[in-house]
Design a protein around this nucleic acid. Sequence first.
DNA 1: ACGAGGTCCTGCGAGC
DNA 2: TGCTCGCAGGACCTCG
Length: 276
Amino acid sequence: MPELPEVETIARDVRPHLAHARILKARVFKPDILRKVTKPAFERGVSGRRVVAVGRRAKHIVIELDDGRRVIIQPRMTGALLVGGTEDARGARDPYDALHLELDSGTVIRYRDVRRLGAVFLLKPKQWAAYTAAIGPEPLEPGFTPQRLHEILAGGALAVKKAIMDQRRLAGVGNIYANEALWMAGIDPSRPARGIALDEAVRLHAAIVAVLARSIDRRGTTVRDYRTGTGEPGGYQGRLAVYERAGEPCLRCGRRIVMTHAIDARSSYFCPGCQH
DNA sequence: ACGAGGTCCTGCGAGC
DNA sequence: TGCTCGCAGGACCTCG
């Protein structure tokens, strides 16, 4: 479940291979991952193009091409963007590979997605402008301040956890880091967003920034499927305070961590002793 | 305008 | 052993 730190790690791993390379050929094996573009149009549009830049926006990998178009990859649940490793010992292609980008260096960048909930777009500049404009601020950029977070939460009747996971309000935070940040800030995830006071928003802002930055430092969290761009698990899973720790003692107050599906039918983990 | 709930997809583990 | 079933959940969709 790649969230911001995982996608940032993937982009950093893939960038040295992909940036400034020419994509000799794009091959789509699972056309249902493509959104708003057909397989022939995607393969024709990408093959032969040079990559200008490789970046990240929210939980999406952004590959900018020399004609101004961008390939957007949303790994969602089980997607992975990997450098090489396209064939096993017997020379067989991975059955879960959805897309290959064959580079002039000989390296192949592959998008692998077991459940194919991921999505791949090929966007023209105007389409990209609309796409990125619909997503909230990047939490690790200077524009994301405690005041901005307080404004994001203001007026929302929805749970604060759901609000910070809403990509239109804030970019890149998913279920794992929402749980972790709310624990760090000592805030009950089920509280209405509009009830979060400014001093609490200050704590939550610091918690969001800290947990994302620390996870990037450790190359992301592997609970199940996530792999870095080099195919390895991340290193933050051992640092999780609440996620998948139901029944275990809170690291701050010792009470048992509770799990509920009460918020948006997703697993919420929190400490009833020190999150209010 | 906003929020609730359904849908997509497949591997895995629990339970019988 | 082999089967069914529920679950994982981000983003998009429809409905009220």
